[in-house]
Design a protein around this nucleic acid. Structure first.
Lengths: 153, 153
DNA sequence: ATCATTTATTAATCTAGGTTAAGCGCGAAA
DNA sequence: TTTCGCGCTTAACCTAGATTAATAAATGAT
């Protein structure tokens, strides 16, 4: 394991890569995202300090995700996801987070997803542009702006 | 670990339960699903033989999912998810599956999601009613019926 | 075989959110 | 200080999918 610094905007993994590492964020903030066939960007995860970022892929399949830094950051690099977790509880927590995400995507409206996000990640709401939050929620920035102004009434 | 038989329709876990177990399916087919605040049912996972079914939840939080059998089935019961996986690769695979699912929900249309499902789970398409597939895809049975008939042209 | 229940299809209408486009405020660079 | 670029908002219009409802087909129970 080694530690590396990443400057804001720097990319440490690309979609299509055939090898991927796992990172534990020690400082600041990264994100992982994908670009779909229509060319649209979707944020998969925000990763503040203490979180893991990695592309969770089946063996021998290419990466889907890009990973870059939203602020000047620092991460611990692990050569693969399996040796990153002596205690499986960390992996189970990640499963729990992804499960909740799927449940939200399937059952909640745009404004409900936003309010849930505000509750769970109040600090991130302050640190990233609103259009990135929209991207994470699976809606357009225009739609997010609209539902927020409707809620205000 | 012990093995139990489950008859079609039998429920082995309920949303709100404060304890949950993990199951490896040895025979036939189970599903996990949730009921949202509007009372609508959403299938979270189909679990054919060889798969794991479990509610992936953070420690000390109640279950979100119901788990029941779609056919007469048999499972191995593990008292908790951590002792179910000596080899972490299984957990990583589950992460990969959930990640793909989120990507599909965020970036694909109804018919694209259906075609992806057909590719990945051809056997399940044959075994469960179409409305359950719609529920898994995050759309209504009517919408699935519509896009399939449009595709036929 | 008959009846009841569940599932699938189709069609009409409605709505959340997408698309396009214009205008505005603000911070960074010259 | 101006200007450029970016992020946010608003508004008009459009579309995928939801809702409701009616009918038909399949499945299961007696």
């Amino acid at each position: 394991m080694k530690i590396i610094d990443i400057t804001k905007g720097e990319m440490i993994q690309r979609s299509g890569d055939l090898t991927s590492k796992a990172y534990i964020v020690t400082q600041e903030l990264l994100r992982s995202y994908l670009v779909d066939e229509k060319g649209k960007e979707h944020i998969f995860t925000f990763a503040p300090a203490g979180w893991i970022v990695a592309d969770n892929r089946l063996p021998n399949t290419p990466c889907d995700l890009f990973i870059d830094a939203l602020e000047d950051s620092q991460v611990e690099v692990y050569t693969n996801a399996t040796d990153l977790d002596p205690q499986p509880q960390k992996l189970l927590n990640r499963l729990a987070v992804l499960q909740k995400r799927i449940i939200m995507l399937m059952s909640a409206t745009a404004i409900e997803r936003y309010e849930h996000f505000e509750e769970i990640y109040p600090d991130i709401v302050q640190r990233v542009p609103q259009k990135m939050i929209a991207s994470y929620l699976g809606i357009t920035p225009e739609a997010l702006s609209k539902v927020k102004s409707q809620r205000a009434k």
